[in-house]
Design a protein around this nucleic acid. Structure first.
Lengths: 221, 221
DNA sequence: CGTTGTGAAATGATTCACAGCT
DNA sequence: AGCTGTGAATCATTTCACAACG
């Protein structure tokens, strides 16, 4: 292993996901290789950016050729950790919880929902996307027995912190948070948040600027 | 108007939403003022960062006092464009579409869903969150008659670009995209994307690093 | 050739530190 | 006295440009 140990910008990690998405699409169309210019163009990035991002993690390219798509896909999956299986529990059987459970792509990425929990008596026992909704009291046993690494938090904002604490107490290593609050957790736990309101506000801002104004960067897709 | 015309970093705009979220929470607890240190602490930012972000848009603070919460909320809403009403259509009556329609917070932020469209015959006519699902052929009339400014795209990836084109053709000014593809649109249209898979991959990466590694920045919440 | 990987330069964002306001 | 707004300094990221490679 010769991999150099320099600091990896967070923005680079976000782009890795986007590279992977594009590469998978090209792979499905049977394309075999791609160069940094082509890959950059679809994401509105420079070729140098693409090369530098990838070079943080190793030497994947072939001078004069570019990158072999399949090989790069495998490398990116390994780097991102989606070449493994991650068991997850969904907390909250409301609309967002249901949408998540039905989202096929999660499984494709290696994330397996092993249970849905909710502490609302009126939903416990219902079947959603093939899972019986279980009471929150099952959490600890589930995490132990099914080796659950990820909690997907789809509960109302006011209880999100409390439930996050329970998840961490139970032993999950990461939380995907859909509640519009910032969770306060210690550093050993990974957190990624998806906040629809923030997304909408970003959009409203772009539209409000309209012809009026000027943001320097382009779309945050 | 004395507002200085400097470049606004995109990261600043994203933080504006987070400031607003925190301010609204404090306002509900009846807090009247807040200073840049307090506001920065909850988001793990420096006080200077907070002040600089806000100063891009005007002078909102009172030396010796801080910021008056209600006043700052109003200013941020105006800046973000959520002090206005935006009519929106949801395209796609699948799980994500349903979750969005049921998401109360959208309306609180000034976004009004005036219709759901889908071109799957088997769902057209169904009622979802109080709206009849209408056929895609109604799109143009709807956008005209209801002054629709925003399209919320909750369709499968393979048709996302095509539907985006239809939305723009019909006259929407912004698209909130839930499909895991990059949309290619001309600059006059605002785009914000929410990709669950990207979020999960970011999380997987954080966990994979685990004790192992070190990203420089902390949580992207 | 064409294209990578990478130092060096340029650009951009954050933090420091302090004058000035209330 | 306490806190803002902001130039100057620091730190991070992106782009340039080119040697090295298949």
């Amino acid at each position: 292993m010769t991999s150099s140990r320099s600091k990896i910008p967070r923005a680079t990690v976000k782009r890795l996901s986007l590279y992977l998405r594009e590469l998978e699409s090209r792979h499905n169309q049977n394309q075999k290789t791609i160069n940094s210019k082509q890959l950059g163009d679809v994401l509105s990035l420079t070729d140098a950016q693409v090369r530098k991002d990838l070079a943080y993690f190793g030497q994947f390219g072939y001078p004069g050729v570019g990158y072999r798509i399949l090989e790069l896909i495998e490398n990116l999956r390994r780097i991102l950790g989606t070449d493994r299986k991650w068991n997850a529990v969904v907390i909250g059987a409301g609309n967002i919880g249901r949408a998540i459970m039905a989202y096929q792509r999660f499984r494709q990425k290696g994330f397996e929902v092993v249970a849905v929990l909710d502490n609302d008596r009126s939903v416990v026992g219902q079947v959603i996307s093939g899972h019986h909704v279980r009471p929150m009291s099952d959490l600890n046993d589930l995490v132990q027995q099914r080796d659950v690494k990820i909690g997907i938090l789809a509960v109302p904002a006011p209880v999100a912190q409390e439930v996050a604490d329970q998840l961490i107490e139970a032993g999950v290593q990461g939380i995907l948070n859909f509640a519009p609050v910032r969770l306060d957790v210690h550093d050993a736990v990974g957190i990624t948040s998806v906040d629809f309101s923030v997304a909408l506000e970003q959009l409203a801002f772009q539209i409000s600027l309209g012809v009026t104004g000027s943001l320097e960067e382009e779309n945050d897709q």
